[in-house]
Design a protein around this nucleic acid. Structure first.
Length: 644
DNA sequence: CGGTCACGC
DNA sequence: GCGTGACCG
């Protein structure tokens, strides 16, 4: 067996020594020494790596190291043996620093990360490396899957992999300086440096992960399953009751019902044989059988649900056969349909069940910790996004949802510390609009939703603001940040378009600076085709000069929203980098999560008050705005729901 | 694989 | 406004 393996290795080395790879035959420690020397003597080195191999391009030539265990990395050549290559002062041009860190590669001197640089220059969020090269140099690169498709049976060999990596490294080698120049010319160097500092912070957070209580999730899963099991028969019973009523009222016949059930069957049964059997069953069934046993439909299917509600039950349609929340709420509130409430409840529980309670426990490591991935180039505005799992959309509003947060816990002897910014986007709005009323309100530490309510309803200082008025004002405040239309506001508040327009125009009269800012941002976007945040992050705004009025309106909202949302995102990134510096090396505190305006830490219990104070202070003072103070709220507890 | 729905900020 | 993900067809 040993013999066989050795032969295999030798064979691979032979391949690497072949003509094509002459310059790339790093196969032993000596070769690494040689490469180290070449790097030292070079002005720059381009590095492109994936799980299969690494290509280095220096001024002296190209070098390939296979990471395929069966090929080249032997007892002699491990990733550790390569470490000295990354401790040199020679500047590295790379693509995706965080991925390299995950692979254990951490070049001391990074000249340019094209992954980050390209994101800042283009705002492209879904662009693959191949597209980037095509857009830049017009060069067409085959993706790995494309290559694998061509090589039907034989997998990609070392030679293919070498070519694959080398062509990419070559692009990096020739592009590093160009990217740096372009970033500089586009005033993006500052934000680029922030992003680059952030990479390591994100890597550490991902690596640290967050602990979940598996037993708790198991128990909650059972609880949800029981609740779902109770709701489904209820929904079915309501359908049955209604259908019986419709029959009595001569609005439905047995034939009608059969037709509708067959329609559902078509959606339920994909296999022809199954459907034919079902068809047969329906034809033969009597009314009793139909109502008791054949009333089968998928509540989770909007299409099927629409058929059941509007054809079988003959509920009055709200918006065609649509069954979204708004529609169900109307059916519940206007028509008093009990089934609507049950469907809403079903949806909520099913969502929690599938998206969180079932999914999260599957993703734990051996320490019951979950490691999300923070995508740094995933949004057009500069925010982070989180995936696998997305920990930025863990429920918080409903009682049932909060139970998910209870499952996120701190390890023994530790507590979770959550600090969030108070209305950071509205404060950003105040800062960049210089609206005097807004600035004054924050100077006096007023409740802004309360203030907006007073403005919208012309209340005096000593009049109480009702809960309803405050919550309406809150929605109006948000709709301003989002650049929402009067139409959107009217449907959210369930008021007339005229009323919504009235609120918006009142808002702008009361906060004239905000109106002026919106006008200014839109003008800039129209003129330049892009907008910038306070820290000069760019967002290109497509469609702002379109001939389609709706597209223009949408682009205008994007423009306004990007400046505010993007500036808030910048602030969080700056603060995270600063926090990382201050907390470096401290073993009793770790930053775990960022949820847009909130940071979550795991802190040793006895030190939590001390750290809370420190972090709150850093969050409030690291970024100094000219006219508005930033405010952060501290919360702590043994689980994430207490830390709120 | 695009549309709908629902969760977050 | 900005995301991710489950589910359907």
């Amino acid at each position: 067996m040993l013999e066989g393996k050795k032969n295999e290795e030798e064979k691979d080395i032979e391949v690497l020594k072949g003509k094509k790879l002459e310059k790339s035959d790093i196969i032993d420690l000596d070769g690494i020494k040689k490469l180290k020397d070449e790097i030292k003597k070079s002005d720059q080195v381009a590095l492109f790596a994936n799980e299969n191999g690494i290509v280095f391009i220096t001024d002296k030539g190209n070098r390939y190291i296979s990471l395929n265990p069966s090929a080249l990395i032997t007892k002699e050549i491990t990733l550790d043996a390569l470490k000295p290559l990354f401790q040199l002062d020679t500047p590295y041009v790379i693509y995706g620093y965080k991925k390299l860190l995950k692979a254990g590669i951490d070049p001391k001197n990074i000249k340019c990360d094209i992954f980050i640089g390209n994101y800042l220059l283009t705002n492209h969020t879904k662009e693959e490396f191949e597209d980037l090269v095509l857009n830049r140099d017009g060069e067409v690169l085959k993706t790995q899957t494309e290559i694998l498709k061509e090589k039907v049976i034989e997998k990609m060999n070392s030679e293919d992999m070498h070519d694959f990596l080398e062509i990419r490294a070559k692009f990096l080698y020739r592009s590093g300086d160009k990217f740096l120049e372009e970033l500089e010319k586009d005033k993006l160097t500052k934000i680029y440096n922030i992003e680059m500092d952030l990479v390591k912070v994100l890597y550490k957070m991902e690596n640290e992960g967050i602990l979940i209580d598996l037993d708790y999730f198991k128990a909650y899963q059972k609880e949800l399953a029981i609740k779902l099991d109770e709701i489904i028969p209820q929904i079915k019973a309501e359908v049955k009751k209604c259908v019986e009523h419709n029959i009595n009222m001569m609005e439905l016949t047995e034939t009608n019902i059969k037709d509708i059930l067959l329609q559902l069957g078509k959606l339920n049964y994909k296999k022809k044989s199954e459907y034919t059997a079902y068809e047969q069953k329906i034809e033969e069934a009597d009314l009793d059988e139909l109502l008791n046993n054949q009333l089968i439909f998928n509540i989770a299917s909007p299409k099927q649900l629409g058929i059941v509600l509007f054809q079988l039950m003959k509920l009055s349609k709200v918006k065609k056969e649509s069954v979204g929340v708004e529609v169900l709420e109307v059916l519940r509130d206007r028509d008093g349909e009990a089934i609507a409430e049950n469907i809403l409840e079903y949806r909520k529980l099913a969502k929690l069940q599938s998206t969180y309670v079932e999914a999260l426990p599957k993703l734990v490591d051996e320490n019951s910790r979950i490691h999300t991935t923070f995508n740094q180039t995933g949004t057009a505005t500069g925010r982070l996004s989180s995936s696998n799992p997305n920990l930025q959309n863990i429920p918080v509003r409903t009682i049932e949802g909060i139970k998910i947060r209870q499952g996120f816990v701190a390890k023994n002897g530790y507590k979770l510390l959550a600090i969030d910014y108070s209305q950071i986007e509205l404060r950003v709005l105040a800062e960049i609009s210089k609206d005097e009323t807004l600035i004054l309100a924050y100077e006096q530490d007023k409740d802004l939703h309360d203030l907006t309510a007073r403005k919208l309803f012309s209340l005096t200082e000593d009049e109480e603001v009702s809960r309803e008025k405050r919550s309406l004002a809150k929605i109006v405040n948000f709709s301003i940040i989002y650049g929402k239309t009067a139409f959107g506001l009217s449907s959210e508040l369930k008021i007339s378009l005229g009323e919504a327009k009235e609120y918006i125009s009142r808002y702008f009269t009361q906060y004239p600076g905000v109106k002026a800012l919106e006008t200014k941002i839109i003008e800039e976007a129209k003129c330049d085709g892009f907008v910038r945040t306070l820290y000069d992050r760019k967002r290109t705004i497509d469609g702002i000069n379109s001939s389609n009025k709706n597209i223009v309106k949408q682009a205008e909202r994007m423009a306004v929203n990007s400046v505010i949302q993007g500036t808030a995102a910048d602030i969080l990134k700056i603060v995270m980098v600063e926090l990382n510096k201050k907390l470096e090396g401290m073993e009793d505190i770790k930053m775990n999560l960022q949820v847009h305006d909130e940071l979550i830490f795991e802190v040793k219990e006895e030190k939590i008050e001390e750290y809370a104070k420190l972090i709150k202070d850093i969050m409030e003072t690291t970024v100094k705005l000219d006219d508005v103070k930033l405010k952060a709220n501290v919360a702590m507890g043994y689980n994430w729901s207490e830390a709120k």
